[in-house]
Amino acid sequence: MHSVALVVYPNFQPLSLSIGSVFECANLLRGEPAYAFHLVSEHGGAVMSSQGFSVNTTPMRAEGYDTLIVSGYLDFRLPEASLPALVKAASVHSRRVVSLCMGVFVLAEAGLLDDKRITTHWLHAPTLRKRYPHLQLEEDRLYVVDGNLWTCAGMSASLDVALALVESDLGHDLARQVARKLVIVQRRGSEQSQLSALLELDPRSDRIQLALAYARENLRDDLSVEALAAVARLSPRQFSRVFREETGRTPAKAIEALRVEAARALMETSRHPVEVIARETGFGDRERLRQAFLRAFGQPPQALQKRLATP
């Protein structure tokens, strides 16, 4: 059985607790226990979260765990010196060490990140880089795996990391079932950017939001201005004007961004050839997909596939 320990400390961000549901569902769907989940802290007992409620914990054990996960803060602060020392001692006997969001600072203070590729929340990346200039920071990545070290971005990315851990342990099919059980719309891979295309567009009106939501769910269909205007119940001319006012982009550029994001996610989570990915995401053929990737990333989709295929 895999022992998984989530390390919390005073003022930890409680969204990190949600990863326990991933391992709980893995046990449920597998039909037998695969994970033993532990909520631990430096001294054990009640630990207060940043939202004012406390959780009961057991003392972190020096002999380590199969997977040791360090939760994060909401705002920047350095941990007490005793915590990184304890995490470092436990990491020696743990198969994997994971940081959630600003938990990376605990690992950095423990000296566990030297010569490792890492990531953290984009907002705190400049502080991390300034304090630890020797680290190999990849700040736009959702999560990064380097050997037995896993680091991830903001707190919602903890679910993506937990699903990736389950996939590594128990296979793709079970991880997919867990995601469906938790009603996670899209399993995001490590290469995915921390900022989604929909979040960057951020329209104000319900009608434009409705049109973008429709587009996101129907990327293979006709997503012309006329089609989207009909969804938004506006004339094509009105729709184009309002869309650009609210998002700063033309509808065509926005739809391309959504399709590129979906294509990149498919490359990370499947082994489909480029032709299939182009068809599934509405590009139609590999040349249109290639041109879109060159505009978005400065490299063709084959370059991403090659990087993903490299151990």
Score class of each variant (00 low, 15 high):
Val7Trp: 04
Asn11Trp: 02
Asn56Ile: 06
Ser49Leu: 07
Ala85Phe: 00
Gly45His: 05
Ser49Pro: 06
Ile19Glu: 13
Thr58His: 01
Gly20Trp: 05
Leu39Val: 08
Ser41Glu: 08
Val4Ser: 06
Gly44Glu: 07
Leu74Ser: 09
Gly45Asn: 06
Asp66Pro: 02
Ser3Pro: 00
Ser71Gln: 03
Arg30Pro: 00
Ala46Ile: 00
Pro59Tyr: 08
Leu78Ser: 03
Pro84Asp: 04
Asp66Asn: 15
Val55His: 05
Ser54Ala: 15
Tyr65His: 11
Gly44Asp: 05
Ser16Gly: 15
Arg77His: 13
Gly64Glu: 11
Met48Ser: 11
Ser82Trp: 00
Pro79Tyr: 07
Leu39Glu: 10
Ala26Met: 08
Ser21Asp: 15
Val70Asn: 03
Asn56Gly: 14
Pro84Cys: 04
Leu86Trp: 00
Glu42Gln: 14
Tyr73Ser: 12
Gly64Tyr: 09
Pro10Tyr: 02
Ile19Lys: 02
Ser49Tyr: 08
Leu68Met: 06
Leu74Val: 07
Ser71Asp: 03
Leu78Arg: 11
Ser71Pro: 02
Met60Trp: 02
Tyr73Thr: 13
Phe23Cys: 01
Asn56Phe: 05
Asp75Leu: 10
Leu74Cys: 01
Gly72Val: 08
Asp66His: 15
Phe23Asn: 02
Gly31Leu: 09
Asn56Trp: 04
Leu28Ile: 13
Tyr35Asn: 02
Glu24Tyr: 14
Ser3Gln: 15
Phe76Trp: 15
Glu63Lys: 12
Ile19Ala: 02
Leu86Asp: 00
Tyr35Met: 03
Phe23Arg: 01
Thr57Met: 11
Pro79His: 06
His38Asp: 11
Ile69Gly: 04
Tyr65Asn: 10
Ser41Arg: 04
Thr58Lys: 10
His43Gly: 10
Ser50Pro: 01
Ala36Leu: 12
Gly72Ser: 13
Val40Thr: 08
Val47Glu: 08
Leu15Phe: 14
Val4Tyr: 03
Ser50Asn: 12
Ala26His: 09
Ala36Gly: 12
Ile19Arg: 05
Glu32Asn: 11
Ala26Arg: 06
Leu83Val: 03
Val40Asp: 02
Ile69Glu: 01
Ser21Cys: 02
Asp75Trp: 07
Glu42Leu: 15
Pro33Leu: 03
Asn11Lys: 14
Glu63Gln: 15
Glu63Ala: 13
Cys25Tyr: 14
His38Tyr: 14
Pro10Gln: 07
Pro14His: 05
Glu80Ala: 13
Phe76Cys: 00
Leu68Val: 09
Glu32Lys: 14
Leu68Glu: 08
Leu68Ser: 09
Leu78Tyr: 05
Met48Ile: 01
Val22Gln: 08
Leu28Gly: 00
Asn11Ser: 14
Gly20Leu: 12
Phe12Lys: 10
Ser82Phe: 00
Gly45Cys: 10
Pro84Gln: 04
Ile19Met: 15
Arg77Phe: 06
Gly20Met: 14
Tyr73Asp: 03
Ser21Trp: 09
Arg30Thr: 12
Asn27Pro: 03
Leu74His: 12
Arg61Ile: 14
Glu63Pro: 00
Asp75Tyr: 12
Pro84Gly: 06
Ser71Arg: 02
Phe76Arg: 01
Ala85Lys: 14
Ser18Ala: 13
Gly52Ile: 02
Ser71Trp: 03
Val7Phe: 06
Leu28His: 13
Phe53Asn: 07
Ser18Leu: 12
